[in-house]
Design a protein around this nucleic acid. Structure first.
Lengths: 249, 249
DNA sequence: AAACACTGTTCGTTTTGCGAACATATGTTT
DNA sequence: AAACATATGTTCGCAAAACGAACAGTGTTT
């Protein structure tokens, strides 16, 4: 490599990131397959992670321990965005009585960096650190608005738009249309595009230079809330907080 | 070492964990000092972390990026405890109208694994992944109740009880007394022991075998809430949810 | 100007990690 | 019971990685 680095660190982090909702525990062979490493290499990574306390071993399977939260906390403890955002998300949740989140663009995903859970249950799997594909989420459709024309062309040309429901936009034209609508309306509303029964709305957070740096979203069940309610009652509250947050950045 | 491992992985994770509230950004020399590594080794770690997108580099300083949240999410996406706890914390927050958290014992700290922020601001720095010393926090005084007598003796003998406020218990006897009171009362109340103006109460979460596996806490300002209100109004709500959560484990 | 602190780079040396191969164990299928 | 498939634990000679002291350059402080 051009500059000397730490190949073992890269491998170990890849092994850690192989754990997730679809792989709550991993055996050595599973970890090797998930990462493309040899079995011996995957075993070395897992042994070191276990020695350091980041994963637990039950004799066959490895699982992440709470210690990994320390790694995640390095962002939460050092970055202004989630810390400034949290009171706004709490205030939106109080006013709207639904779960609300803040996401940033991370590669081809929305990555959730702050969250305030409402009391009503919605099993969306959204939590701090979770990702959702940009094209299929309201936050993503807002965040894509920050791309230049060439970046957007590249994104549309290289992304496989896999349907999550029968409402998911699955062509480049349909996705581009959603992005343009989000730019025009100053919000994106996703009506069962990500998950059946799930309504969500996102608004952009702009920095003082006017760039989209994050998106705030509210999610609710279609059985409880209508699209018109989202637009007319929820969006103004979100936009007020998004503007206030943008001013603090 | 007895078993072959990944020394580079250990070093890289140590560098990542050097970031935090007291070190939101690190230069190469600062990272080397914080971890005891040589400057060249710290640089290799940071370069690899930057190449992988876990830290950003501004030409002089490194800072964690949202990608580190992915590592933290491996626990949140795979473990039952925080997922089962979250609705309970939201319900407690709704009923009590204050921030509430769930912590587990991690070495000599309480480590926060789930959180529900109230609308009222309390700058305690508590967030998922944050740690507080066991002896100085209400969750810690509850969690210490899970130690065997010999584990507790060892903890008391080896811990330096640094005062955080003039109310912090700073002798082994005083700490042991708080732990015994928590066992007896089924709760711990911390009145300005951690931070001036901060009141907090914690109750244990027991697994079906009756072991303390976590603690739920509520924090409030002394200007808003009294100790009697915590005990008489808040504790019963917390205990009801703690019991329900314990049954789900 | 001198001293100090920090960074970028180098390269001979030391140490680590590699991974195929082998033996063993476990679970499934016939 | 036997055969088969999958997985795990371990080994070890070797190549590659990582080490870190030393040097040169830069910026700041005295």
């Amino acid at each position: 490599m051009a500059t000397e680095g730490m190949a073992g660190l890269a491998k170990g982090l890849a092994v850690l990131e192989a754990f997730g909702a679809s792989a709550p525990r991993l055996s050595i062979s599973e970890a090797a397959r998930a990462t493309g490493l040899s079995r011996a290499t995957a075993l070395r990574c897992l042994n070191t992670l276990a020695e350091l306390g980041y994963v637990a071993f039950d004799g066959k399977f490895f699982t992440p321990t709470p210690r990994v939260l320390r790694i995640g906390a390095t962002y939460g403890e050092t970055a202004a965005l989630p810390q400034l955002a949290q009171p706004h998300l709490s205030a939106i949740r109080e006013a709207i009585d639904e779960s609300t989140s803040l996401a940033v663009r991370y590669e081809t995903d929305s990555l959730f960096v702050a969250r305030s859970e409402g009391a009503r249950l919605l099993n969306t799997g959204v939590r701090v650190g979770a990702r959702l594909p940009l094209y299929a989420s309201s936050t993503g459709q807002v965040l894509l608005g920050s791309l230049t024309d060439s970046e957007l062309s590249d994104y549309l040309a290289t992304t496989e738009f896999t349907a999550r429901t029968s409402h998911t936009p699955t062509t480049a034209d349909a996705v581009a249309e959603r992005i343009e609508a989000a730019r025009t309306d100053g919000m994106a509303i996703s009506n069962e595009e990500l998950e059946p029964g799930l309504l969500s709305i996102a608004v952009p957070v702009l920095d003082p230079a006017g760039h989209i740096v994050a998106a705030i979203s509210v999610s609710a069940s279609t059985s409880r809330v209508t699209v018109d309610e989202l637009r007319d009652r929820v969006a103004p509250v979100m936009q007020r907080h998004a503007t206030a947050l943008g001013r603090q950045l």
